[in-house]
Amino acid sequence: MSETFLFEGIEFDLTISYADTIGVEWEWAGAWTAAGEPLMRTHGVTMLVSLPDVYKQHGPLIPIHPRPSAAQYKAAIDVDPDYAATVAAGYVEAPAAFGERIAITPAPAVPQLTAHHLPPSPLEQTGFRGFLKSLRGGR
């Protein structure tokens, strides 16, 4: 059988570990159920559980990819021909240039509205205050 498993439209790579919702790490035990489902286990536990059961009871499962090795980091850095020269030269920036680079540009001015820009309040016309005034005048 292959080292991938398709379950509910999700393809699981069985060569890597998976973390469940509380952080327990599950890995493929290298065995299969009679129904063709991969058997999973947690570290230090010998009980095997099928991947669909782990997914339904503890999922969703989050893949845990191995960290890159030092050689992989070096290969990624060596792709940039200027990286080594940049690191060797160092990066020095004058304080004034740094200040200019991080200076906050002021926001554009927003016109301020004054009272004469606003329509009169309906409460001043015939709204709630008008109702209250009518109560006072009627007594």
Rank of each mutant, 00 (worst) to 15 (best):
I22Q: 13
H65G: 04
E37I: 05
D53Y: 02
I64R: 14
G44Y: 03
D53S: 05
S50C: 08
A84C: 06
Y55V: 12
I62C: 07
V92A: 14
H43I: 03
T33G: 04
A19F: 02
H65E: 13
T42F: 01
I62W: 12
P38Q: 09
L48T: 04
A35N: 08
S50N: 09
A97H: 01
G90C: 08
V79M: 13
V45T: 06
A29F: 10
W28R: 07
Y73W: 14
A31P: 04
E93G: 01
P63D: 07
V92D: 15
A84S: 08
I22H: 10
W26K: 01
L39Q: 06
I77V: 15
Q72A: 11
G59S: 02
E93Y: 03
P81K: 09
P81E: 12
E100I: 04
E25Y: 08
A96F: 06
I77F: 15
Q72C: 06
G59D: 00
D20C: 02
Q72E: 11
R41A: 14
M40Y: 07
M47P: 07
A88F: 06
A19P: 03
F98P: 00
T42V: 00
W32G: 01
R67T: 11
R41V: 12
A85I: 14
A35F: 13
A88P: 01
T86S: 07
A31H: 11
Y73G: 00
F98I: 04
T42E: 02
A31N: 03
D82Q: 11
E25A: 12
I77G: 09
E27N: 05
V45G: 03
E27D: 02
R101W: 08
Y83Q: 13
A34D: 05
V24F: 08
R67C: 13
A85C: 06
D80A: 09
Q72F: 09
S50Q: 10
M47K: 13
W26F: 10
V79Y: 15
D20S: 03
A88E: 07
A31V: 08
R101P: 02
L48G: 03
P38M: 09
A94S: 15
D78C: 03
I104F: 12
K56Q: 15
I102P: 00
E27Q: 04
A103K: 01
V92C: 08
A103W: 06
E27C: 04
A89W: 04
V24P: 01
E25M: 14
H65C: 10
A89I: 02
T86Y: 15
P60H: 12
